[in-house]
Nucleic acid binder design. Structure first.
Length: 567
RNA sequence: UGCCCGAUGGUGUAAUUGGCAACACGUCUGACUCUGGAUCAGAAGAGUUCAGGUUCGAGACCUGAUCGGGCAACCA
């Protein structure tokens, strides 16, 4: 596990976040035998995104830090939305991030029998009843946050009748929506969740694991706390919107369990990222409407998308570490995520030469037909990475951006009469250039000075600019995909009157063909990562073909020139 | 107009029993550089939403207000 940034952060005396403070207090008080057992409880109804990554790092992180355990539990109580495809992707993503759950993955559906028994216990205790009313009626009677609700006419049904009806619900005697099982709590509670919440609904649907054995399914509230209890969870971390559910979480446990052991729900603020949408519903919509190419489209904030984009597990963990946890709403600058990958990739990825927008450069005084192999350092940040040979010759490609016919004086690159260093090769001087019929530069003619050869050359003049290049006859062609933020608005979901679609960035994907790469890249394998010198970090996409590798730009290098240029 | 949360530089997070606000990203200088990257050195930027109160002393405690978020799915 590459966790250098994490290490360096934790070496300093880091103050505790509010969850760590609670855990340490519990530990001191010997609460729950001083165990720490957390869980990551996704619903398998979509792919995990960077917001889940925060939760994963938190839950598994707390377990690691306090020598505890962390379960993976699928919260699969709604068969209509859940699929095994999602279960698989979630397991893959959690492991890819570098975490391993305790024992086997668990499922709320593992507890359906126990939950059913508990529901009957509630009925026997006179704390639950079957309501025959329609959804609309129940919702009307619920009142509003400012107005108390009124009791259902079925609230006073006998225990026997409730038991009978509930069993028949279970047996599938009634159609969807005909009846529900409700807790009998308080229809006037200021907390809407305590106004006789629904415990079970009738759903004639096939469940991804239990198939057709169940005709009734528990609601989240009736399943979550009890599942925590059954798994021995001590600290049940969830996001802020569940804060008002906590009294109910505790109420069920108090009614159903008589041990002193209790899991405790603690809420934290979910992650928001600028220029990004995070709701599963909206992400699903992007996928379904083909605005992006699937859940793992590199523009998606999904873990699968980030992975395909070239983000590393270590960089995401470092990111999660840096953003911290608290209870106030927050919007993290995507720049911080980008910083985290750059930081990681800078130390680990080999440098290579790639010209994305090639223009031909001819060195007039270089021997015709001569090719020489030059030694290039693979990664100056990691001397163990060694060197490689790169062919150099009379005809090269350089980046179109690296030549200007009439440059401003702060331009350190090539221009008529100016000198520049070719990375790892020679200093060249531009003598002339040729335009095509569209007035675009077609060929640049230079001369070189043999004496200036990198490393061995006797002349090492001070030269401001260094360009990357690729020798023409040995270059391989590639497709390069440049990604930009998917949305142009800082807070695309923050507009009540407009859908996020209105803020899509039309230039979020630019596909470049005919890019020229140094020959060793022909052997690059899917998922491999490189720094294209002076351009950014790129990783080999799964769409790559034998003779047409495809590279995704993970993130560009920081670039002061674009900044100066823009001023 | 009910209940529950929250409020600290541009953005996040910190300040352990109250002792004159720290760290990271970003921004701006400068050095260095065969990546306008990295690295290194430095700077600017908040007096902690507001008003009262407790105290020798409050970002921390109390009261009230303001602002923001959440809660009325047979979703999670």
């Amino acid at each position: 596990m590459n966790n250098k940034p994490e290490e360096s952060l934790s070496e300093e005396k880091r103050s505790l976040n509010f969850i760590e403070a609670i855990i340490e207090e519990d530990l001191q008080n010997n609460k729950n035998e001083s165990r720490v057992h957390t869980r990551f409880p996704p619903e398998p109804n979509g792919y995990l995104h960077i917001g889940h990554a925060k939760s994963i790092c938190l839950n598994f992180g707390m377990a690691e830090k306090y020598n505890g355990k962390c379960n993976l539990r699928f919260d699969d109580t709604n068969p209509e939305k859940e699929e095994t495809e999602y279960v698989d992707s979630i397991m893959e993503d959690v492991q890819w991030l570098g975490f391993q759950w305790d024992k086997e993955p668990y499922y709320a559906s593992d507890y359906f029998d126990q939950l059913y028994e508990w529901a009957k216990l509630l009925i026997r205790k006179g704390l639950a009843y079957v309501d025959d009313q329609s959804q609309e009626l129940i919702s009307q009677q619920k009142g509003t946050p400012t107005r108390p609700g009124i009791p259902s006419p079925f609230r006073l049904r006998s225990i026997e009748e409730n038991m009978d009806l509930f069993e028949r619900m279970k047996n599938g005697e009634f159609p969807n929506g005909a009846r529900v099982l409700r807790a009998k709590i308080d229809m006037t509670s200021p907390n809407m969740h305590m106004r006789d919440p629904v415990l079970y609904r009738i759903l004639h649907a096939e469940h991804h694991r239990t198939g057709n054995t169940w005709k009734i399914y528990p609601m989240y509230d009736f399943a979550h706390g009890q599942s925590d209890y059954l798994e021995g969870i001590t600290h049940s971390l969830c996001t802020l919107e569940f804060e008002v559910h906590r009294p109910l979480y505790d109420w069920f446990l108090d009614q159903l369990i008589d041990t002193t052991y209790r899991p405790r729900q603690i809420e934290f603020a979910r992650l928001n990222l600028s220029y990004t949408v995070m709701s599963k519903r909206k992400l699903l919509e992007l996928v379904k409407t083909n605005i992006v190419n699937g859940w793992d489209d590199p523009r998606m904030p999904t873990i699968a998308g980030l992975r395909r984009r070239g983000y590393t597990p270590a960089s995401i963990r470092a990111f999660a570490d840096r953003i911290g946890v608290a209870k106030r709403d927050n919007v993290i600058d995507v720049g911080l995520l980008e910083f985290s990958v750059r930081e990681d990739l800078n130390k680990t990825s080999p440098r290579v030469m790639a010209v994305l927008d090639p223009v031909k450069l001819i060195i007039s005084n270089y021997p015709e037909g001569q090719i020489e192999d030059l030694e290039l350092v693979n990664n100056p940040e990691d001397l163990d990475s060694g060197i490689r040979m790169v062919p150099f010759g009379k005809e090269l490609y350089i980046e179109r951006d690296d030549f200007m016919v009439d440059p401003p004086n702060k331009y350190f690159r090539l221009a008529p009469g100016r000198e520049v260093r070719l990375k790892g090769a020679y200093v060249i001087k531009c003598e002339s250039f040729e335009l095509d019929s569209n007035n675009l530069v077609k060929t640049i003619y230079c001369t070189y000075d043999v004496e200036t050869k990198s490393g061995t050359g006797s002349k090492q003049p001070k030269i401001k600019g260094t360009l990357h290049w690729v020798e023409a006859s040995n270059a391989i062609d590639a497709e390069v995909r440049l990604y930009d933020r998917l949305f142009m608005d800082e807070d695309p979901s923050g507009h009540k009157d407009q859908d996020v679609i209105a803020f899509l960035n039309p230039e979020s994907l630019k596909v470049l063909n005919g890019c020229k790469l140094e020959p060793m890249l022909a052997k690059a394998e899917i998922g491999q990562q490189f720094q294209f010198q002076r351009l950014g970090y790129f990783s080999v996409d799964k769409d790559s073909l034998k003779n047409n590798p495809v590279f995704n730009r993970t993130v560009s290098l920081k670039d002061n020139w674009t900044k100066t240029k823009g001023q």
